[in-house]
């Protein structure tokens, strides 16, 4: 279990360092194809959305509290542009719905 942990950390850390060094680490700038550059731009939103969507909206085990937390956080974040406030209020919405209705 711990070997697996350290191997995973090493791979993520090593890969991340390569990404960081790719343009900042040397004199020569690598030439990446346009299509690759474009997809790099879309990967982070896709990753984050793929990670969270099933947590907030899950048809096999619906959770109204999670949905309320997500909606609250989205609305606060869009309206007031305060990320941490959005997280805290989302959290509170989750607890409230759980306490009041479930």
């Amino acid at each position: 279990m711990t070997e697996r942990y350290w191997l995973a950390v090493a791979l993520v850390a090593g890969g991340t360092l390569v990404f960081r060094l790719m343009f900042l680490g040397g004199r020569r700038r690598p030439e990446l194809p346009w299509l690759v550059i474009r997809s790099l731009d879309y990967i982070p939103p896709a990753v984050l959305a793929a990670l969270i969507a099933p947590e907030f909206l899950n048809f096999s085990s619906p959770d109204p509290a999670a949905l309320a937390a997500g909606l609250t956080a989205v609305l606060i974040s869009l309206r007031f542009k305060r990320d941490f406030t959005a997280i805290v209020l989302g959290f509170i919405a989750y607890m409230l719905v759980n306490k009041l209705f479930l």
Binding site: P45, L48, A49, L51, I52, E55, F56, A66, A69, G70, A73, V74, S77, L78, D83, F84, A86, I87, G90, F91, Y94
Partner: peptide, 12 residues
């Protein structure tokens, strides 16, 4: 809920 909410805020 901490991680999903953080990712959601990051995404937005």
């Amino acid at each position: 809920m901490a991680a999903p909410l953080i990712f959601l805020a990051l995404l937005i």
